[in-house]
Computed example of a mutant assay.
Amino acid sequence: MSTQVSQTEPTAVGAVDAARTALVEEVGSADVGGHLGHVVEGDAVVTYLFACKRAGYVGWHWSVTLVELPGEAPTIDELVLIPGDEAIVAPAWVPYRERIKPGDLSPGDLLPVSDEDPRLVPTYAFGDDPLDADAKAQVRQVAQDLGLGRVRTLSVEGRDAAAQRWYAGQAGPAAPIAQSAPHHCHSCGFLLRISGSLGETFGVCANGDANDDGRVVSMDHGCGAHSEVRLAKKHEPQPLPEPVVDELTLDLLETF
């Protein structure tokens, strides 16, 4: 917050002492610094600014607003602490809906989607991906006439946003586990292919031993649980020696 201090003396600038006295009575003398100036708010209304010496409030100012009527003692109108140009203030408010991140939802939590969410469009207007063009036309007609099927489906914006999010995250090629993988997911036998426009870039991992089991992964993602991974010979288990049959009997011992 920027504080603009007037250098023009109001009608009764002598009220600085009255402002300081009222401030000291309210917050104590230890927290009040020197007079910084004043702001003429309007006819007979003046705000006096004092430095704040309170711990943790560097750059803040005490603001004391007085009503100064001619011939009468100044009247205290407001006393507040305000941030200056160098004050440390809380970050800008972010609505709760925009602060939610993947993984924040707990069982029973509800996260409604706005009717105007750009990620979704009416199914009758766009079809139901990954149907082909003819099938999309049929879906649009059926949904329009009978109201059947999903009410909304992914828009182009919603699909692209999901693809960018997945590709840039832990399911993409830049993930540390993918950087050290011997092979990519596109050649893994555990990859389940998906239909539609995202099928060329993504699939679903079906390896129960892999970190990404049951998750969408990019074709150029990878991990050490690839179906074709093989251990180097030095890491393979050593073969067991041939078994030795003990043929020594009591009768044979007596001959020694």
Rank of each mutant, 00 (worst) to 15 (best):
R97P: 00
H184Q: 10
G172I: 05
M219P: 01
E116C: 09
L248Y: 09
P237W: 04
V139W: 03
L231Y: 02
L253E: 11
A171G: 11
T123G: 02
A181N: 07
E116K: 04
L81C: 10
G33P: 04
S218V: 04
T201N: 11
D212Q: 12
D115F: 01
M1W: 08
V229T: 12
D17K: 13
L66S: 13
A73P: 06
T201F: 12
S63D: 08
C188E: 05
A143H: 13
G169H: 00
E200R: 14
E26Y: 04
D85E: 15
Q141I: 06
D220V: 12
L105T: 00
H38E: 02
Q144K: 13
D77I: 08
F126N: 03
R140C: 10
P130L: 03
E242S: 09
S6E: 02
E236L: 09
K233C: 08
Q164V: 13
G208S: 06
H183F: 14
A55R: 11
L120T: 00
V46G: 05
S197V: 15
G33I: 11
A90K: 09
P95C: 03
R152M: 00
P239K: 05
R54E: 15
T47L: 02
R230P: 02
A133I: 15
C52Y: 06
Q164F: 13
G222V: 02
A12K: 01
G149Y: 00
G172D: 08
A178S: 15
P122A: 10
V204Y: 12
A90C: 01
A30V: 10
F50S: 05
L111S: 02
R20H: 05
L253W: 12
G71R: 13
E72S: 14
D213N: 14
W62E: 09
A30K: 12
L240A: 03
M1N: 10
P95M: 04
A15S: 10
A206L: 10
G127T: 07
Y48G: 05
V39M: 08
C188A: 05
H35S: 11
V16K: 04
